[in-house]
Design a protein around this nucleic acid. Structure first.
Lengths: 225, 225
DNA sequence: ATTACTAAAAGACGAGTAA
DNA sequence: TTTACTCGTCTTTTAGTAA
């Protein structure tokens, strides 16, 4: 990936083109990247051609948004900086109430393609099923931080004519005296439309039973990001 | 600053050239930056010429370390990513024991050049003097995170034929019931050899007296980074 | 094997222009 | 004003060569 292109992409992100479309002209963008209008215009074209931004050209400028791929590309650099500068691990506290999922977790955790990775990368065989928490608004904001963290990569795979997507894990501790010593991890599939108010936790044991939890109980976790 | 140059600098940092000198040849570096040996060699020369890395050329390669300036340049990009991706503020807890400083704090906090900035940027007039904490080893690691955070910039200035260096502030809370409602901030001068096991805190009041603290007492703070 | 040149090829830039 | 061309110039890269 060209270096100037990523630079331009970053400046667009800085102008706010991640959350929502921003309106700008090549002229304004030229100022932002300190170049000529021509270069700015060319960069925007190139960015679009590479699928990094989405453009809508209007009479007096254009509307720009980063695409998924664009954000992904930026995250890669961000990960590099984390690798360079982060000295110790940060922990964040996330709190939510126990809810019952759709039972998908039970299915996915037993798939060999995932199970093996959990065993080697997390160091435990997951209990079939996930503990699902519905997050409060504060925790949702905190959870978003995980989006920009690399975590422990779980690769996608193909099996029986189906593809199973990848995801990321973050090891966590459940703040409950009974959970002392029980390994667990948050899993975040890299699906595009994954709900942001839900936290899925896997563990070698049946947490719901082990911690005597019932629907609606508050569960507090400390996640290593 | 050229975009390709910063890219090269980042890769060097990723190879570990921040902490200590790394040995590498242009050939190896060419692989890292995916270019020809010539370009790799030229980039290293350019990096040195710009004062971003320090080089020592030997028979079979060279020893490379980032300079202060190089690290600084990298931090700038890192700050941009933080601006892009950080959604909410993170707080870190730092703990240390009260020590008595050299009294410099008392001098600096009364200087108009600093005082005015504290007033406008932090919203309070600092009590003349700083509360100095000697950090435990865990807190030292946590404190290092502040190195990679922009914080609230305090500009350096010149006065009476002397230059006074700049620094950064982070607003903090002291975890002591009596400190409830008292504004305070950590200050980190941008001196090159600032001790990493000390935390200096300023506040509008004389904390030592207000919180009934004595030499050696443990003080816990929550710092907004 | 290195680093560090030179010179040719490739690429990026910005002025000018059209729509 | 815009965007999006072309085209000449300047910069960067790479191959080749010397030490």
């Amino acid at each position: 990936m060209g270096e100037g292109i990523i630079f331009s992409l970053r400046k667009l992100a800085l102008l706010g083109a991640i959350e929502q479309p921003i309106k700008l002209s090549s002229g304004h963008f030229a100022e932002a990247i300190k170049s000529s209008v021509q270069t700015a215009a060319r960069r925007l074209q190139e960015l679009e051609r590479k699928g990094l931004v989405h453009r809508r050209i209007i009479a007096d400028g254009q509307w720009i948004t980063l695409t998924e791929k664009g954000v992904e590309e930026l995250k890669k650099e961000c990960y590099e900086y984390q690798a360079i500068f982060s000295t110790a691990n940060i922990e964040v506290e996330i709190t939510g109430r126990l809810i019952t999922g759709l039972g998908e977790g039970k299915y996915y955790t037993t798939l060999e393609g995932y199970k093996k990775q959990f065993e080697t990368k997390l160091g435990f065989t997951p209990f079939p099923g996930t503990l699902n928490l519905h997050l409060d608004s504060h925790s949702i904001a905190v959870r978003k931080k995980l989006n920009w963290r690399r975590g422990i990569k779980i690769e996608g795979f193909e099996s029986e004519n189906r593809t199973f997507g990848g995801g990321r894990c973050f090891s966590c501790k459940i703040l409950n005296p009974k959970a002392e010593g029980i390994k667990s991890a948050v899993i975040i599939p890299e699906r595009t439309h994954y709900p942001e108010d839900v936290l899925e936790i896997i563990s070698p044991v049946y947490l719901r039973c082990e911690l005597n939890l019932e629907e609606g109980d508050e569960v507090r976790t400390k996640v290593k990001i």
